[in-house]
């Protein structure tokens, strides 16, 4: 099986040859090429080169065209702060006052320098890998993007007390999100990962999410012209698992803090799980711990398909050692071959 066949089989809740593995590398590519993160994202050619190298090196079953979370903020005219050994971060929120929301102009995807780079990267990668490996594009959900646009504190005020302004911002963000997702699909992305950390009950209580972010997700995902995965970026997902299934997403990125057996039970034949290795803990693991973690995920959720093994945040940390990532890949090949053998206790 090639990567595309392996992944599609798993998503259809059938057993492929082995559990697919998604190492979700974004800025980690700079480490692979030995250049600074800022330089790395300056040219699509660098990202293409690193993605192809890392696919081979780590037996990766996906290509990941995610640059960094605030790239959308950059398109809106906001600031991005580059770090030496971490993901580029958003600067001061560019919407200073709630009253400024009606001044926001929806970026034109094809006129935004940073977004165009992602589209060029996607097209080049598509040309290179064809249909052998899925290319995963990324969007921030309209519901979660405001944390970087206006800041968390003001955004909570919007959610709880300023319904009109909240709706206005959601309309702007949804229009942007849909056109950004569809542009990536047109450029060659196989599917879109919809990052929605605020959907996690760790951040917003479920009742409020159902009134707000969930409705927005249903409406937004229905306008995206391709398959979608929802990712809560380490946030706990179990209490909203059924809700996310109703949004139409085919895949769900779940947390290292979620109970894997319960996740499997509730998701079986309904949504494919993506996870749930703790990226932040990888820097402390030795090879044995890495293997034990892979075994835990496979034993907990691989039977019958419906599992893609991955980190739980959607972005491999700079500090995760290469040897640990390689060990994870080897362990998936060893323990993840179907049919999955039961662990002898």
């Amino acid at each position: 099986m090639n990567s595309m066949e392996r992944v599609m089989t798993a998503i259809q809740h059938k057993e492929p040859d082995r559990v697919p593995i998604f190492h979700l590398f974004s800025f980690y590519g700079a480490k692979e090429l030995g250049i600074s993160i800022k330089e790395y994202f300056s040219k699509p050619e660098y990202v293409v080169e690193a993605q192809l190298k890392m696919r081979k090196k780590y037996s990766n079953d996906c290509i990941y065209t995610f640059f960094y979370a605030p790239i959308e903020i950059e398109a809106f005219g906001g600031e991005v702060v580059y770090l030496e050994e971490g993901p580029p971060n958003s600067g001061e929120p560019f919407v200073k006052m709630i009253e400024d929301i009606n001044k926001i102009v929806i970026p034109n995807i094809h006129e935004s320098g940073p977004l165009k780079k992602v589209l060029e990267t996607t097209a080049m990668l598509k040309k290179s890998v064809g249909d052998e490996v899925p290319i995963i594009g990324v969007v921030m959900s309209p519901f979660s993007l405001p944390v970087m646009q206006i800041g968390f504190e003001k955004y909570l005020e919007l959610i709880y007390f300023r319904q009109d302004a909240f709706n206005q911002l959601m309309e702007i963000n949804q229009a942007f999100c849909v056109s950004w997702a569809n542009a990536q699909l047109e450029a060659g992305a196989t599917a879109i990962c919809y990052f929605d950390p605020l959907a996690s009950p760790t951040i917003i209580e479920r009742e409020k999410y159902l009134e707000t972010g969930h409705k927005i997700a249903c409406s937004t995902l229905s306008k995206i012209n391709g398959a979608t995965a929802t990712h809560l970026a380490s946030g706990v997902t179990l209490p909203v698992l059924n809700d996310i299934i109703t949004t139409g997403s085919a895949v769900l990125g779940f947390s290292a803090k979620d109970n894997i057996e319960k996740m499997k039970e509730k998701s079986k034949n309904r949504i494919c799980l993506l996870g749930n290795l703790s990226g932040i803990n990888m820097m402390n693991w030795d090879k044995n711990q890495a293997r034990a973690e892979v075994k835990r995920v496979i034993q907990g959720a691989a039977k019958g398909g419906g599992l893609i093994l991955s980190d739980n945040h959607g972005d491999i940390p700079w500090q995760a050692p290469e040897e640990i990532l390689l060990e994870i890949s080897e362990a998936v090949k060893e323990y993840g071959r179907y049919p999955i053998k039961d662990e002898v206790k």
Binding site: E153, L156, Y160, P201, T202, I203, I204, E205, K208
Partner: peptide
């Protein structure tokens, strides 16, 4: 309650 997953961060904040 937040530590135990019963309440959300937004409730803690508000």
């Amino acid at each position: 309650g937040w530590e135990e997953g019963d309440f959300s961060l937004s409730q803690v904040y508000m």
